[in-house]
Design a binder for these strands. Sequence first.
DNA 1: CCTGCTTAGTGTCACGGAAACACTAACCCA
DNA 2: TGGGTTAGTGTTTCCGTGACACTAAGCAGG
Lengths: 227, 227
Amino acid sequence: MSAAWAGPDRFPVAVDAVLFGVSAGALKVLLIRRGAEPFLGRWALPGGFLRAGETLEQGVVRELAEEAGVRPDPLVQLGAFSAPGRDPRGPVLSVAFMGLVRVEDHVPHADTDAADAAWATMGALPPLAFDHAEVLKAGHERLLALTRSEPVGLNLLPEAFSLGALQALYEAILGRPLDKRNFRRKALASNLLRDTGLTQLGVAHRAARLYRFDAEAFANRGAGIFL
Amino acid sequence: MSAAWAGPDRFPVAVDAVLFGVSAGALKVLLIRRGAEPFLGRWALPGGFLRAGETLEQGVVRELAEEAGVRPDPLVQLGAFSAPGRDPRGPVLSVAFMGLVRVEDHVPHADTDAADAAWATMGALPPLAFDHAEVLKAGHERLLALTRSEPVGLNLLPEAFSLGALQALYEAILGRPLDKRNFRRKALASNLLRDTGLTQLGVAHRAARLYRFDAEAFANRGAGIFL
DNA sequence: CCTGCTTAGTGTCACGGAAACACTAACCCA
DNA sequence: TGGGTTAGTGTTTCCGTGACACTAAGCAGG
C-alpha cells in the first residue's frame, strides 16, 4: 500500500520560509501575524504544514503562494528544526527555507492563518513565535554566505539594470557600503553581465549603461560572483 | 495535551547518517546491508526512524549507538530529503547528518535492521538503497567544505600526534597530496596545536615531535584551520 | 547660457594568503 | 658504515582584496 504502514512514530511537518527583500535601501524579512493559537497575535515566519503527497519544496512553494503570493528564487533549504518545546502543541518538525523576493511583488493580505503580514526591517524585529528567531538567524547567515559564492539577488532587479543599482542591492543585503571601483571590477570580471547597449533615460545626471544577467554563461561556467 | 491534535498530516521521519572514517590512507563511509524490506540485501546508510519525544540529534545519536556503537563528533545536519518515491513504502521524510569517526572504534555487527556492516571506500561504492547516493554526495561535499573552515578530523587522531600524521589524515580526507611545508606552516599558524615535548619512540627514522590539540584555544578563538 | 548638483565611470598601489619548489637532519637497521 | 625513511626548514612568485580621488556627462534652475 502506498498509504500508512504500522511501524514508526509519525510527526507533523511544518515548512517555514525566511523571505528576504530589499526596500528603501534596507534588508527586510516577510513576517505574518498569527491569527490562531498558539502564539496568537505574535509575529512569525510564513509557513504551514506539509501535506501528504508533496515534497518539502512543493509544500513551501504552495504555502508561499497562498500566504504571500510570491515564488522566491533561489529557494534554499536551511535545515530541519526539532528543538523540544519549539511548538507548544507537541513535537512538530520544521524544515526551513530561505529565499529572496521583490518586495513590490508581495501584496500583504490576511489569510486563514495570518491576521496580518508585513515586511520587517532586519535589526528592528519584533519578538517571534516558536523558534523563529533562531530560524531567521540561520537564514540571514545563509544569505550572507550565499552572496560570497553565488550571484544572488538578480531576481530582485529589472531585466536591464545599472551597475549602480546592482551595487545598491548588495549594499542593502550586506548592510554595509562597498567600494564602487572594486565592486565594478569584480562584477564585470564575473563574466555574468552583458552590456545591453542601452542607457538610462530621464535621470537628472549622467546616464548609466544598462546590463543584463547572462543566464547561459552562469549555467555553463558554474559560479561567478559579484563581490 | 502534549499528545496529538487533529489537524495536519503526519509523516514518519527517518534520521540517516553519513559516517566517514579514514583507514589505509583512504576515506571510507560506513554502510550497512539491509536485513529487511524494502531494499533487502542492498547497502544503505545507517539510520532509523525518529521516535516521539526525541530531537533529530538525539535520534541519530541513538541510532548510531545502536547500529554502530559510535558517537561521531562533529555531527552536522545535512538537511531534509523528501523526494517522491525515495521510500517505496510511502512518504518518509529523511533528515541526514554527517560525522567523522575512528574506523577502529566501530565494530561491525549485525543488527535487527542490518544484516551486515562495512566500511566502503569512497570512489568504489556499491549501489545504495533509497536516495542514499544523493545523501552521501551531499555529505561528502559538506565534509570537504568543512575542512576549509574548521579543524575537522582531530577526533580521529590519538591524543598526541605528529604533524606527519595530521597531514596524512587530511590527504586521505581530501583525496589529494598536500605540500609538506605549506601544510606545516598553516597548521602551526592556526595556533591550535601545542607541542607536548614528546617525540615518537621506536620508529625506524628520525623521531617526530608530538602535538596535541588545544581545545581551549579553539573554543576561545572560534575558528582556525589547517589548510 | 552658465552654474551647480548628482551619479557614472576609471587605475594604481600595497598587503597578505596560497602555491610551487629541494635540501639537510636524525634515527634505525642490515 | 652505508642505505633507507621520515622529520624539519625558507624563499619567491602570483593573485585576489581593499584602500584610495578625480574627471565625465547629463539635467535643473537661475
